[in-house]
Design a protein around this nucleic acid. Structure first.
Lengths: 213, 213
DNA sequence: CCAATGGCTGACCGGACGGTCAGCCCTTAA
DNA sequence: TTAAGGGCTGACCGTCCGGTCAGCCATTGG
């Protein structure tokens, strides 16, 4: 927190904006400082005037994005008294939040999935916080008997997360799969997920087995 | 097929073996030709004697790996008369195959998930072939009434694939998630997946709702 | 009016990269 | 025995990278 301070305006934030865009699109190694300088409309030396190194700039981008991302998710978990409706909404909202932050998600996933990345621990913390809170939601519902007792809530949440991640990261190649044309529409997509998931975690007592929507 | 011919022995295959290992571990950009030469025990110039460019070497690695990988999967789909047992086995086998080819999977996923990668179309074809065949398996079972009618077989297969991919690619950060210690054991892991998935796709008629194993 | 400060820049640096090239050496066939 | 050919190499090239540096210039405080 002492390093990686986040300025609010001026050329510093121009640089950060451009950096977030470009790192998100091409990754840390895929972006050169001179290209970044051009994109930001400043000189390369100026970037080094504001940030000690490429890595410090990168970490500052991650910190800034994490801050924004975390505050966004908290609004998803509230509302909806019916447990089915709440988890249904969660499934949709999770994918939607990822879609709205696609470049950032790609950035974070790159950190999480490769070894020895500079922002790995930071990204892990962001993902873990996010994830654990939602798992807790499922577990509580399960303990209240609103969901079937046998399944693992961590795995259920992981299914939601993994499918959402693959939808973002793999949109290119998913489109090329035959009989998956509905992939273009994220709502249809998460409905298809929800349809299976709900049958997988619904309580045995027949509390309206209407599938999603 | 005319380019990217695959030699069987000698220093060429030494180079290919080392390249597959290193590209798998660090990605295309993360491996320098001199480091690769050292690893393979040959001179850098020798690599360029056998392969016109770094990219041609890379594509040859992908072709060779694809050949090996495809022939491996065909043995998974057979056996098991009981539909539940067959799909249960498929879930486990899919993850296991990925685990046995971890470096290659990481290689392919990097191609699939980033934009404008040299081996993207090749990787897409490999994944799509693989995936479509297994989706067909599920769809046929569904049409035979062995599985519930309402769900999308593409999504069901995507869940299996996505979870397996995340298990491989994200093993580092999954370990750091609280209450997911069982992540260390891939069989426990795919059992947890199977437990939810089977409830999600099982036919309504009670054909033994024993969960996996 | 001047000196100092700090945002900002063009020019430059050492090093690593992918790729080239002349030529060494070992095998082979006449 | 020797000429030819191909596997193989050390030395080298141009380019691009992250990062440095001396200094320009506009603002500001005395």
């Amino acid at each position: 927190m002492s390093r990686y301070t986040i300025p609010a305006a001026g050329k510093s934030s121009q640089i950060l904006d451009a950096a977030e865009r470009m790192f998100g699109a091409h990754g840390f190694e895929g972006v050169s400082m001179s290209a970044l300088a051009t994109e930001a409309g400043v000189s390369k030396a100026n970037i080094f005037h504001h940030f000690r190194s490429k890595e410090e700039l990168y970490m500052t981008v991650l910190h800034r994005a994490r801050k924004r991302f975390v505050s966004q998710l908290l609004s998803l978990t509230d509302n909806h008294d019916d447990p089915q409706a709440r988890i249904h909404a969660l499934t949709h909202a999770y994918l939607r939040q990822m879609l709205e932050n696609e470049p950032l998600v790609r950035l974070l996933m790159r950190e999480l999935m490769e070894k020895r990345r500079p922002g790995k621990v930071l990204s892990e913390r962001l993902f873990a916080d996010n994830f654990s809170e939602l798992v807790g939601l499922l577990r509580e519902a399960q303990e209240r008997g609103e969901l079937r007792a046998g399944f693992d809530p961590g795995m259920a949440m992981l299914i939601i997360a993994a499918i959402s991640i693959i939808y973002i990261q793999g949109s290119d190649f998913l489109r090329h799969l035959p009989s998956m044309a509905w992939i273009e529409n994220p709502d249809l997509f998460s409905d298809a997920l929800w349809e299976i998931l709900w049958h997988g975690i619904a309580p045995p007592t027949p509390t309206k087995t209407t599938n999603g929507n």
